[in-house]
């Protein structure tokens, strides 16, 4: 077997300047008549390290986890990561009223629908 092709590494790639692992947070997405509710799991991320961006129908969540790791590690199964995930959101979301809260490592994002997009009960007038 000629192992050369297998082992050849691409040396022309641009050097990466970040070495933080990017991981995808697990999410639950719910909807009712008034809003879309998103729960994202980001254990260990502090409130200030979370950014939520909504731009032209694209929702981007990022969360930076920086753990204080002191002492000699006996074992380590998780480390510093960057949580990142992007979604497409309908244009009917009222961007100005989006609310987010962080509790127990779960980010809850409330995306209210704009008035025009809400289902409406049509009243039938007696003739």
């Amino acid at each position: 077997m000629d192992g050369k092709d297998l082992t050849q590494k691409d040396q022309t790639a641009v050097e990466s300047t970040r070495n933080l692992r990017q991981v995808t947070p697990m999410v639950d997405i719910y909807e009712n008549d008034d809003e879309i509710l998103l729960h994202a799991e980001m254990p260990g991320v502090k409130r200030d390290d979370i950014t939520v961006n909504i731009d032209n129908g694209n929702l981007t969540l990022t969360g930076l986890r920086t753990l204080t790791m002191e002492g000699a590690a006996e074992w380590e199964e998780f480390g510093n990561v960057e949580y990142q995930r992007a979604f497409s959101v309908p244009q009917t979301i009222d961007v100005n009223k989006v609310k987010a809260e962080l509790r127990d490592g779960i980010l809850a994002l409330h995306l209210p629908k704009s008035e025009a997009a809400k289902p409406r009960q049509i009243e039938i007038k007696a003739g």
Partner: peptide, 8 residues
């Protein structure tokens, strides 16, 4: 998942 550190 867990991490364990020995701090003396």
């Amino acid at each position: 998942r867990t991490n364990l550190y020995d701090k003396g």
